[in-house]
Amino acid sequence: MPDLPSIVIDAESKPFWDGVALGELRLQRCRDCARAVFPARVVCPHCFGEGLEPLLAAGTGTVYSKTVVHRAFGAFAEQVPFTIALIDLDEGVRMMSRIVGETPVAIGDRVRLRVTRLDDAPDAPQLPCFRAEVGA
């Protein structure tokens, strides 16, 4: 089986991935402008403030856009069709994710965090996926 692309965790992303392993979604919030920030960084992209503090996300959001993928590369080729979505988290940041579960989602649907592996391979990482809130 082709290898999955590796995730190169660094000092800034480690808290995020540590949180995912615990089933949590860890963001940041700027003390200066109070806005949520993702991905993690040392300066706020809204006000250039340097006072970024941890923010635990509720794990709920709305689908901003989505695509059903029919042709993918490497290890993902065996997983088609699958759904990738951009999720607007309730905290005010947007992230890419995979939609899991039997219920398909549409733009505007409510979704909830579900940390899972996308592959049976022993080295497959735990990922912050989402599932439909309705019918889940």
């Binding site: 993918a72 290890a75 997983q79 890419m96």
Partner: peptide, 30 residues
């Protein structure tokens, strides 16, 4: 071809979206 997910790419690569077509598909859908 999928590349290792470094820096900001680590938050997108693991989900398997074929690039760049998948990103343009998300824009088209919206």
């Amino acid at each position: 071809r999928p590349r290792p997910g470094t820096l900001t790419e680590q938050y997108e690569q693991p989900f398997g979206l074929p690039q760049p077509v998948g990103a343009y598909a998300l824009a088209a859908a919206r």
